[in-house]
Design a protein around this nucleic acid. Sequence first.
DNA 1: TCGCTTCGAGTCACCCTGACCTGAACCCGG
DNA 2: CCGGGTTCAGGTCAGGGTGACTCGAAGCGA
Lengths: 226, 226
Amino acid sequence: MDEHPSLAVSTVIFALRDSELWTPLVRRIRQPYQDRWALPGGWVAPQEGLETTAARKLLETTQLDPTYLEQLYCFGDIGRSPSGRVVSVVYWALVRPDQAERSSDDDNVRWFRADALPGLAFDHNRIVEYALWRLRNKMAHSSIAHGFLGETFTLAELRGVHEAVRGATLDPANFRRQVLAGGSIVPTGEHVVGASHRPPALYRYTDATLVDQGPLLASALTDRED
Amino acid sequence: MDEHPSLAVSTVIFALRDSELWTPLVRRIRQPYQDRWALPGGWVAPQEGLETTAARKLLETTQLDPTYLEQLYCFGDIGRSPSGRVVSVVYWALVRPDQAERSSDDDNVRWFRADALPGLAFDHNRIVEYALWRLRNKMAHSSIAHGFLGETFTLAELRGVHEAVRGATLDPANFRRQVLAGGSIVPTGEHVVGASHRPPALYRYTDATLVDQGPLLASALTDRED
DNA sequence: TCGCTTCGAGTCACCCTGACCTGAACCCGG
DNA sequence: CCGGGTTCAGGTCAGGGTGACTCGAAGCGA
């Protein structure tokens, strides 16, 4: 058996804040790219699954426990790292606003707007761009928006997620009609109390299935794709 | 730096024969799973890109040079291989019927119907199943059908590809209307000669872009998947 | 020439979509 | 207490795409 490339795992994290997409990055404390911002990640342990590694590294470095975690792509071009051949299995994750609060925004972890990142280490700028494209793609015909929301939510909140990701405003009435016709959402019967104006109804997702898909469940779902 | 898992590359190949999907498999000549059928592949060389490795191994073991090659998924569960931790970057490919002819169907390489495979080595059954799901998915809103066809083709041939992959018949008239409205196809002006019945017109794809995508081009395309 | 088969084009009802409108419910200020 | 402002909820309406279907055109073979 030949000598094998180094195998790493990284994760692109998205969270919604002020109707915009934000992503946390960690400061590199070693060469190469010392002091540059990079995706959280690390080496794959011999007796640990890839997704498990991604989740563990995420928790260790950013204190985040995402509600959605899926493999994005495996990057293995030669020359990705100046220190030798590295193959990175990259995951992407969604976290809710309340979960994002836990992540300390200190000197080693900082949140950036996903569409205005600084120059990152390695090929991480390209990776985040691809993750953004995949997020927008999947949002179009799937129900990943769930990953950004809590257990219950109003239609305005759900619409806000779609608007933030798509970068465009949506007609509230038409959005309501479509999402209700889809059937993946159901009203809880309760309403928001205390806020101004007419109190909106609360909704809940029917298919609680989120977090980790992979090829196991993929064929069983009626999702599309991408 | 810790000890790293072994890194392999495998490829699921699809070809159209007699209106059905077929896939070539290779016989394993070593342990583990000796003499069992498996996906073609091999170890990643230190100075070779992942996709390049997939294409090279494909050519070496099956004499196939696919018109379409894309990364499918990275499988890295512990326990995939009884001989130790192996992480496999799996690609999937499409070949045209004339290309598939070159692949020798001998004792070490054999073609199987994609929906009726024997018990394969490792977790390769699951991998092929996922590749099939992805193919059907991508066929729905993309123009990958090109990978199965030659430079020019009739609408009946194109429809045959969709019918074979989707496993259902399509209305010829409606299929024509939709695919022509899509604009990804254009008539060459020529017609088939010599065959029975009314001679059908020949068409050609407008966007010649096929073979290898990856995150580089993905964000530039208006594709969805995936 | 007639019959058969496939190709190419057209029709029609239906559903989904986007744009728009109206009333309901609530808070707040006067 | 009352009316303005704002958001929620539901409905209308025209336009475009889809599926099911029909019909003539074009070629081959008996």
